[in-house]
Every structure is written in structure tokens, then in C-alpha cells.
């Protein structure tokens, strides 16, 4: 009990729960988002402690990084549209009457009840119980890769992963459909120091993202983490207006969105035959095929996440800068 690492765990878990409460209860939405980003950071740390570095990477890059940027962008858009961008009182976008104390207590009670019920179920369940460990270990040699999580994602349960890429595709189609050609709030100029930083680090981030993708075959990493890091480059380019999407780029963007889905599904279909079923990669080519799929899926994920951040389809309705 005196092990300081356990104290660290307790402290971390308490901080995670406290941040969850705080991010829902603070008045200022901006603070809520900052707290939420911190919450994501600390949950990623918790998952590191639970020996899940892949998940921590994904959460840090996608769940916190991209999501945080999306939330901030939305908040800025809302304040800009409602004309409260310059006003300090724009704490909440849709201001509501203060919540009466009984309601808060009822909520807390409900929350406690759910926690209690689920915790009882959790404590009653076997821990370190049955799982796929043995099955996966047995199948690993035939998977074509050396990292179990990648093997599960790209081979054993490739069908799930394909559908996950499809979800991303559905999301970007829906987002392009939802947001119409309205302009965004103008972006501020970032200055020379930022430019120097961008010159130096953006290319490095590209390399690191690809490195994560490559690393995925044998260690934590993979298409989703790598794609998210590459998407971060896209986010920075979009934020600093180094790249402004043009209507003429739409065709390329469409192809990039569907590239991952198409390649993944295409390979899954093409390997079928000769007694094999869909998704059954021939063992001697499994590694090549998985790397091919991962590479293309990474491109798709990176472009899609950046497009989800940008939001609307680039159309030539109005000028891109400022509200007409």
C-alpha cells in the first residue's frame, strides 16, 4: 500500500474523475474545453499505466488533439456567428437559467446510483479473467505482423476496422453535407516566430507520423495514430492559413477520403478465392498487404480528420476571408 506508484495511480484516477466533473460544471465554455483536453491527456496517461500505449496514443492524438481543436473551432464559430466574439461575457453559447440546487442533487444522486450499480457489477466480475490472450498468441505467427494490436485491427478483426474507416467516411460526407458555403471567422496572423517554428517542425511531424505508422507492425502505433499525427499537420496548416482549401481541390479530396475504404475493401475482396474467404490474406503476402492497406488508410485518415476539422466543403460561393 505504500508503493508510491499506487499513490500516483490513485491521484491520477481522482484527477480524471474531478476533471470530468469540472469540465461539465464550469460556467465558461472555454474553460470547459481546456479542462476537457486536460482530462483526455490524463486519461491517456492512465491507459499508459494500464499497459495500453496504443490506446493512449490514439486517445492523445485523436480523442484529445483533434477533438479539442474541433471543439475550440466550434466555440469560436459560435461566438463569431452570435456576435459575442469580442465580449467577455460570452461564457456559454446557449445561456440557460441557473440550475436549481435540487436538480443538481438529483443528478448527483443518479450519477452515484449508476456508479454504484456498475461498480458492484464490475467488482463482482472476474478480473484478469477470460480473454482472447491465448487465441491471439496462437494466431500471431499467421497474422503477418508482430504487434498483437495491429494484428487484431488489420487481420483478425479487419472487418470491424473496415467499418470504422467507413464511419469516418460517413462522417466526412455528412459534414460536407451539413455545412454550407459560409465563411469562417477570420484567423489571426501568427507572426515570424510561428513561421520559423512551422518551417522547422511541420516536416518533422510528418516524419514522426509516418514513423508511428511504420512502427505499428511491431510495436505500439499504426494507421490511426499515424494518421492522426499527420492530420495534426493539416490542422496546423489550416489554422495558420498556410493552406486554404480551394473549390478545385474537391475532386482530390473526395478521392483521398475514399482511398482507405476503397483499398481496404478492395483488398479484402480480391484475396477471396481459391478456398479463401474475404479478408483472408494469404500468409506469405499478409505483411505486404497489411502494410499497403495501412499506408493508404493512413492517408485517408489524415485527410479526413483534417477535413472534419475544416468542416464545410470548399465551394466558391463567397470569399474565404471574413463574412461578406
Amino acid at each position: 500500500m505504500t508503493d508510491p506508484v499506487i499513490i500516483f495511480d490513485l491521484l491520477l484516477a481522482a484527477a480524471v474523475v474531478a476533471l470530468a466533473v469540472a469540465s461539465l460544471s464550469v460556467r465558461d465554455l472555454f474553460v470547459a474545453i481546456v479542462l476537457f483536453i486536460t482530462f483526455g491527456l490524463l486519461s491517456a496517461l492512465s491507459w499508459v499505466r494500464l499497459a495500453a500505449p496504443d490506446v493512449a496514443l490514439a486517445e492523445a492524438a485523436i480523442g484529445t488533439g483533434v477533438t479539442g481543436a474541433l471543439l475550440l473551432k466550434t466555440l469560436r464559430h459560435l461566438r463569431y456567428v452570435s456576435g459575442t466574439l469580442d465580449r467577455a461575457e460570452a461564457l456559454s453559447v446557449t445561456p440557460a437559467a441557473p440550475v436549481p440546487a435540487p436538480v443538481i442533487w438529483a443528478n448527483a444522486a443518479f450519477c452515484g446510483l449508476v456508479t454504484l450499480g456498475l461498480a458492484v457489477a464490475f467488482l463482482g466480475a472476474p478480473r484478469s479473467g477470460p480473454g482472447f490472450d491465448a487465441l491471439v498468441a496462437e494466431a500471431m505467427p499467421a497474422s503477418g505482423v508482430d504487434h498483437p494490436v495491429t494484428a487484431v485491427l488489420l487481420n483478425f478483426r479487419a472487418y470491424d476496422t473496415l467499418m470504422e474507416v467507413v464511419v469516418l467516411l460517413a462522417a466526412v460526407i455528412a459534414v460536407w453535407q451539413i455545412e454550407r458555403g459560409l465563411s469562417d471567422a477570420p484567423a489571426p496572423v501568427l507572426g515570424a516566430v510561428w513561421e520559423g517554428f512551422a518551417r522547422l517542425t511541420l516536416p518533422a511531424i510528418v516524419v514522426v507520423g509516418t514513423y508511428l505508422l511504420w512502427k505499428g507492425a511491431e510495436a505500439p502505433g499504426g494507421a490511426f495514430q499515424g494518421g492522426a499525427v499527420l492530420a495534426a499537420v493539416g490542422l496546423l496548416l489550416l489554422l495558420s492559413r498556410l493552406y486554404v482549401p480551394q473549390p478545385s481541390h474537391r475532386g482530390v479530396a473526395r478521392w483521398a477520403f475514399v482511398l482507405g475504404t476503397g483499398a481496404f475493401a478492395g483488398v479484402a475482396l480480391l484475396v477471396a478465392g481459391g478456398g479463401r474467404v474475404a479478408f483472408e490474406y494469404p500468409p506469405e503476402h499478409a505483411k505486404t498487404l497489411i502494410l499497403l492497406i495501412e499506408g493508404l488508410v493512413t492517408i485517408s485518415i489524415a485527410v479526413t480528420l483534417a477535413a472534419l476539422f475544416h468542416g464545410r466543403e470548399p465551394v466558391a460561393l463567397r470569399s474565404d476571408r471574413g463574412r461578406a
Binding site: 481546456v34 488533439g65 479539442g68 469560436r76 489571426p188 501568427l190 517554428f197 517542425t201 490542422l235 489554422l239
Partner: peptide, 11 residues
């Protein structure tokens, strides 16, 4: 760093 730039630009 990305988050920080997002903060600076978007806040």
C-alpha cells in the same frame, strides 16, 4: 504544441 497553436488562433 498543436493544441497551443489552436488555442492561440481559436481563442
Amino acid at each position: 504544441a498543436v493544441t497551443l497553436v489552436a488555442f492561440v488562433v481559436l481563442a
